[in-house]
Amino acid sequence: MSDTADDIADDTATRTRSGPGRILIAVYAIFALAATARSAVQIATRFDEAPLAYLLSAFAAVVYIIATVCLARGNRTSRRVATVSIVVELIGVLTIGTLSLVDSQAFPDATVWSGFGQGYGYVPLVLPVLGLLWLRKTQVGDR
C-alpha cells in the first residue's frame, strides 16, 4: 500500500500533460495567445463597432487560457475545470458558428468562433473534441 493518493495524483497530472497531451496543450496555448491578442486589439481600438462580437472574442480568449493552464497543471481539480471550460468552448464554437451564419448582421466583425472557426482552419471546432477525448483517455479511478 505504498501508492498514496499523492502518487496517484502526480501520475494523473503527468499523464495529462505528457505524450500527445503535450501537443494538445501547445495548440491550446497558441489559440489562447491568438484570441487574447485579437480581442485586446478589437476592444482597445473599435469596441463600439461590434460590442457583442468583441466581448465574445474576449470570452473565448479567457476560455482558451483557462483550458491551457488547467490541462498543463492536470491535477484533479484542474482536470475538472478544464473539462468544464472545454465543454463551454465546444458549446461556444457551435453556437457562435451557427449564429454567425444565420444572422451575420449580429456579427459584423469576425471572432475566433465565427463560421465554426473558419478563419483558423476549423481548428477551433476540432480542438474541444480532441480535448474532451484526451481528458477521457487519461482519467483514472472514477470508472
Binding site: S18, G19, P20, G21, R22, I23, I25, A26, V27, A29, I30, L33, A34, A37
Partner: peptide, 27 residues
C-alpha cells in the same frame, strides 16, 4: 507575437522525453 512562439515551443518541448517533444516543435 512572431517572436514569442518558438521560445515557448522549445521550452514546452524540451520537458517532454518522448516522440511528442518534436511534435510540439512541429506545432
Amino acid at each position: 507575437g512572431s517572436l514569442v512562439v518558438l521560445p515557448l515551443a522549445v521550452f514546452w518541448a524540451l520537458a517532454e522525453r518522448s516522440r511528442w517533444g518534436p511534435g510540439v516543435l512541429l506545432v
